[in-house]
Write a protein that binds this DNA or RNA. Sequence first.
DNA 1: CGTTGAAATCAACGCTAGATGAATTCCCGC
DNA 2: GCGGGAATTCATCTAGCGTTGATTTCAACG
Lengths: 201, 201
Amino acid sequence: MVRRSGRRPGNQDTRQSILEAARSTFAEKGYDNASIRAIAASAEVDPALVHHYFGTKEKLFLATMNAPINPGELIPQALDGPREQAGERLVRMALTVWDSPAGTAALAVFRSALSNEWTARLLREFVVTQILRRAIGELVTDPAEAPMRSALVATQIAGILVPRYVLRIEPLASADPEILVAALGPNVQRFLADPLPGVFG
Amino acid sequence: MVRRSGRRPGNQDTRQSILEAARSTFAEKGYDNASIRAIAASAEVDPALVHHYFGTKEKLFLATMNAPINPGELIPQALDGPREQAGERLVRMALTVWDSPAGTAALAVFRSALSNEWTARLLREFVVTQILRRAIGELVTDPAEAPMRSALVATQIAGILVPRYVLRIEPLASADPEILVAALGPNVQRFLADPLPGVFG
DNA sequence: CGTTGAAATCAACGCTAGATGAATTCCCGC
DNA sequence: GCGGGAATTCATCTAGCGTTGATTTCAACG
């Protein structure tokens, strides 16, 4: 029997609209403060339907993050190019991601990680294994210095993200991305490759 | 009859111990996730007593932050000294504050601000009026450039605080303060006074 | 048709939260 | 030594949460 009887899984845009409502609600309020009931209301749907589709709140969160976050394609772009401008490329990549729709999902993870334990673990593992080791680590020549230099680079990225997307402090929140690239790129570059007296040696 | 309710003999520094319990609990869990019941338990006190002393949860939070946060004395220290090392002094000051007991309160505000709306407003106003305008603004020569330069400096400070105190990512979390001063001081200095091509002009 | 089974809703459970007001106990000035 | 008021606790109230199971609706099939 190829086709079974019964109602076709019709109108699948309900599932999709729940996902979208979840993504924006999680991004806005973080994991804990985003209630399933609020998500359901935002999708104009019964709360129980959310469970029907996604099971638990954790699974809904993971489903929300699963689609948009896929660093596999972006990272090579950041690595490709002259070494002296790697700093600028990293900043530009971060801003591009966070200004895109996928950035909403990233913001959700980030905001949640700051107040919830298991989402924090999620973010930490993702950042360490995917971003720091895989991307930034490649750009640092001396392996012994890689952990500290990667962490310092992360410092710069977090430094933009928090004021610009989480706290929305002006003039950073509405600054043109290229201005931030010009401002922060050299600092990132310094952490990647310049000698750091007082830190190493 | 077993003595269950009623006034406790001696030791009426209860109010103070509630404040301390509140401060550390807020710092650890943020505003929303810190329950009055947990604070009361940590102070070995009935939850209703917390309300008796402080009214609402918001008022308790404000009372908790009121005492320790008083930047009036610190800021002159950061301003005093050679202009070329102002960046390092700012970083050192930030780390000193956050490593002190008062830093617990600051951490509470900061962590709360990342997931809660009204505490975010609280932090924004405090940062903008007290820190940015009053302190960092003094160090920037061109007034037209002050807002952006101050914000960029704030970027650097936030960049250390989040990984070091909120997320506790190594090796930043346990790095010696002077190492971070050496690493980040020059970046801050650049934002304070160096020409920023691509940002201004 | 009638059957089927997914979509969607309803009503409720158990839990935790902040808040309230009455009741109880004790300190302190008189 | 006594009475008022502050300190402390108790028992609740209300509201919202995630979750569950029963129930209803309805398009697609034989």
